[in-house]
Design a protein around this nucleic acid. Structure first.
Length: 458
RNA sequence: GAGGUUGUAGCUCAGUUGGUUAGAGCGCUAGAUUGUGGUUCUAGAGGUCGAGGGUUCGAAACCCUUCAUCCUCCCCA
C-alpha cells in the first residue's frame, strides 16, 4: 500500500479554506442574483464532440478525456485494438473515448441554450458556479481542477449588457475589498481593424497573440515575434504606432480614431468602447475601467467587447476574471443568431489575492460559536438541554464529547476558534446558573441559565 | 508539449569531503495543574532520508532510472 496522494493539480480544501472560498462564492452569487441572473448547473462531463474544436488547437489538447468502460470485454477486443491504433494516430475514436470533463462553463451553456432555445425566455441571463478541468501543467495560480463563476446573457445585442457586466465586476471586487483592481477593456473589432490595416484579416490571430504579451516581454520582443510570424517591416511599424497609444481613456480613443477610425469595423469598435466608458457609472476611488488595445484574450469565439479584470499590481497574479461578447455562440450547435456576452471570475486566484492582501474578514473563520463544557453526567445532561435551546435560536454550539479536565476543553475551544464557552459544573447545577466566558477577552460572568437564550454570542 | 528546481519527523527545514546510534524549531501526547485556555517548565512518542537499482569497506549525500513537487515557456482562470 503506497502513501495516499492526490492527482496532479488537484487540491483538498480544509474547513478554514472552504469557509473563505464560500465567502467569495456567496459574494459573487449574491451580486449575480442582484442583477437578475438565474442559476444553472450542467454535468461534469459532456460528449467529447460538444467540446472539441471550440477552444482552438491548444485547447483541444487540454481537454480531459474519459476512457470508455468495457474496453476489456473479450468479445470486442479486436475492435478495441483497431480503435486504439487510431487513437495513437491522434484521432478521436468513439469506441475508446466519447466523453470528456468540461473545460469551461461557456460551451456547456451554449449547448444548453441550443438544446432549449424553444423554451427559454430571451434575453436569458444565467450564472453558473462549478468546477472545470484542464489537462494543463499546474503552476502558481493554476490548477487542473478549478472553479469558474460565470454570468452570461444571451439573446441581446444591447451594449447595456456590457455596462451591467462591468458593474458586476465592480460590485463584486469592491465588496470583497479588492478595490485596486483594474478592468481592462478592448474590442475584437479594434483588433480586426488593425489586422485589416496591416493588409490581412488572416493575420489577426498572429498579431493578437504577439501584442497580448506586450506588458510581459516588452516592445522589442513583440516586434521580433511579429517578424517571426511573417509580418513585414511596414506592417510592424503600423503595429508599433498602435502599441504606442497612451494616455487616459479619452486620449487613447482620439489616437485610435486617427489610426483606424476610417475603417468600418474600427469605427464600430471605437463607438462600443466609447459607449461603455461613458455609461459605466462606476463610482470608485480610482476608475477601474482602463482601455487597453493590447488586450486580446485567447478564446476565439469573442467578437466584440472583451474584458479582463486584473489583480492589483502589487500582487503578481495577473488576471482574476475575463469575458466578452460573442455574436454567434450557439451557431456551433446548429442554432444561429443568438448573440451573447458574458464574464467569468477566477475564484482560485481571487482567493490568493485576498489572502495576500489579508482581505478576509475575521469572522469568516468562525464555525461553532459556543462550546458547552462537559463536567459530568448530570452536568452534561443539563448542558445538553440548554444547548438545544440555543440551537433553536440559531446559535451554533456543541457539547464537549466527554467529561474531562477543563484544560482540554479550553484547548479544544481555542483550536476550533470558538468564541465562547459555557461552564455548568456541580455548583452551577445546584444554583441554576452557568458561567459564560468570552475567550477573546477572557472576561467571564455567572448568570442564571434562564437568561442564556437572550445572550448574543458574537 | 519543452526546459529547470526540490524531495530528510505531522509541518518548516539543518545535516560538513561519503564515515559510528540522522538533528532542530513548531505541532502532537503526558505531567507540573482534582473548576479556568493562551505563557512557562519537564518528559515522551514520532523516520523504509520519495521509490527502485548501481558505485563503495561504508550512501541521506555520488551515478542511473522512476515517481512526486514547485517554477519558467506555450496557453490560460
Amino acid at each position: 500500500m503506497s502513501k495516499p496522494s492526490l492527482p496532479q493539480g488537484t487540491r483538498d480544501f480544509g474547513p478554514e479554506v472552504v469557509r473563505k472560498r464560500q465567502y467569495i462564492f456567496n459574494t459573487i452569487r449574491t451580486v449575480f442574483e442582484l442583477y437578475g441572473f438565474q442559476p444553472l448547473e450542467t454535468p461534469a462531463m459532456e460528449n467529447l464532440e460538444t467540446l472539441m474544436g471550440k477552444y482552438g488547437e491548444e485547447g483541444d489538447k487540454l481537454i480531459f478525456r474519459i476512457l470508455n468502460n468495457g474496453l476489456d470485454n473479450p468479445d470486442k477486443q479486436q475492435q478495441a485494438r483497431a480503435d486504439f491504433e487510431k487513437v495513437l494516430e491522434g484521432k478521436n475514436v468513439k469506441g475508446i473515448t466519447e466523453r470528456a470533463l468540461k473545460y469551461d462553463l461557456t460551451i456547456p451553456f451554449a449547448r444548453y441554450v441550443a438544446m432549449n432555445h424553444g423554451q427559454l425566455t430571451f434575453p436569458f441571463k444565467r450564472y453558473q458556479i462549478q468546477p472545470v478541468w484542464r489537462a494543463d501543467r499546474p503552476q502558481r495560480g493554476r490548477y487542473r481542477e478549478f472553479y469558474q463563476c460565470d454570468a452570461d446573457m444571451v439573446g441581446s445585442n444591447s451594449l447595456l449588457n456590457e455596462v451591467e457586466l462591468a458593474n458586476i465586476y465592480n460590485d463584486v471586487f469592491t465588496q470583497l475589498g479588492i478595490d485596486q483592481y483594474e478592468l481592462r477593456i478592448n474590442s475584437r473589432k479594434i483588433l480586426a481593424a488593425l489586422a485589416e490595416l496591416c493588409g490581412g484579416a488572416d493575420k489577426m490571430i498572429d498579431i493578437t497573440i504577439a501584442i497580448d504579451k506586450l506588458d510581459k516581454i516588452g516592445l522589442d520582443k513583440v516586434k521580433a515575434e511579429l517578424e517571426q510570424r511573417g509580418l513585414n517591416e511596414e506592417q510592424i511599424s503600423t503595429i508599433e504606432k498602435y502599441l504606442n497609444i497612451t494616455g487616459n481613456n479619452r486620449e487613447k480613443l482620439q489616437q485610435i480614431t486617427a489610426l483606424i477610425g476610417h475603417l468600418e469595423t474600427g469605427k464600430k469598435g471605437i463607438e462600443e468602447l466609447e459607449y461603455l466608458d461613458n455609461n459605466s457609472q462606476i463610482d470608485n476611488r480610482h476608475s477601474p475601467l482602463v482601455l487597453d488595445f493590447t488586450l486580446a484574450r485567447g478564446l476565439n469565439y469573442y467578437t466584440g467587447i472583451i474584458f479582463e479584470a486584473k489583480a492589483p499590481a502589487t500582487v503578481k497574479i495577473g488576471s482574476i476574471g475575463g469575458g466578452g461578447r460573442y455574436n454567434d455562440l450557439t451557431g456551433l450547435f446548429g442554432v444561429p443568431n443568438i448573440p451573447g456576452v458574458g464574464i467569468s471570475f477566477g475564484v482560485d486566484r481571487i482567493y490568493d489575492v485576498m489572502e495576500e492582501l489579508q482581505l478576509f474578514p475575521e469572522n469568516v473563520a468562525i464555525g461553532t460559536q459556543v462550546l458547552f463544557f462537559n463536567l459530568g453526567a448530570d452536568e452534561s445532561t443539563m448542558a445538553f438541554s440548554h444547548m438545544q435551546s440555543l440551537r433553536k435560536q440559531g446559535v451554533r454550539c456543541e457539547l464537549f464529547h466527554e467529561p474531562t479536565k477543563m484544560d482540554k476543553q479550553f484547548k479544544y475551544a481555542e483550536k476550533k476558534n470558538i468564541g465562547f464557552v459555557i461552564i455548568i459544573g456541580s455548583q452551577e447545577l445546584q444554583n441554576g446558573t452557568c458561567v459564560v466566558k468570552n475567550l477573546k477577552t477572557g472576561i467571564q460572568e455567572t448568570i442564571p441559565v434562564a437568561n442564556l437564550t437572550s445572550k448574543l454570542f458574537i
